[in-house]
Amino acid sequence: MTATRTFRVLPGFNLTLGYTLGYLSLLILIPLSAVFLKTFGMGWARFVEVVTAPQVVATYKLSFGASLLAAAINAVFGLMLAWALVRYSFPGKKIVDALVDLPFALPTAVAGIALTALYAKNGWLGQYLEEIGIKVAFTPLGVLVALVFIGLPFVVRTVQPILEDLDTELEEAAASLGAQRWQTFRHVIFPILLPALLTGFALAFARAVGEYGSVIFIAGNLPFVSEITPLMIITKLEQYDYQGATAIASVMLVFSFILLLIINGLQAWTAKRTGRDR
């Protein structure tokens, strides 16, 4: 057996790998391991007690539940938005395109304050919603609204380039072979978009789980009702309970890591299935 050397455009595999690992360690692994190290100081029994306290468990449900839901909403509407931006031309398209990125650029506290002002009972939208009995600001629904807002660009920006690459000829071919519109979407377009859509979903989800700044203004922050997990961490810090804070942080990290691993696995699987694996 002779080993075949794969040709690579950039030379110096060892160098780049070393650099990548070093960079990752410095920026991600070392700070994150500090979280775990600090947690180890507290002992197992105390760790379990802190991370399974009913109030803390209630925040996991809200944080992860609202984040998944927000990412799902963004997947649907982000796809629609990306479709509209790629396939149609309309006046002001460039502006809409730029607007999509705004949630990236806006300081999250500003977003939170703006959303709260909008949805509070004296706000532009809030006053009408209140009349029909829907309360958004200071409820878990408000948390969802904030998370949808900050997660929107992720799906649009991951799906957009794939859609741009997608030849309309494929759809024409499908149509000429007698496919209905829905069939074309379901069997031709969607499978091609799915990996990118999942990546966007994962990014939007990850962003939402860790979000603090915007949510805190609109949430209401009532124990057992509208507290998010990052707020629990701040609460522990305010009591100078560093270990309690890192304990909850490490649970969040592990949860998020597992969920992201699953989503990424799913994405790789669909990519392979649709033959886009390279």
């Binding site: 509070a120 200071f138 203004f217 701040i234």
Partner: peptide
């Protein structure tokens, strides 16, 4: 509503 900080509570009362 339980704001995390006093300034936030003032905002909730005054602005919202």
């Amino acid at each position: 509503v339980l704001d995390p900080a006093a300034r936030g509570a003032t905002n909730t009362f005054v602005q919202r």
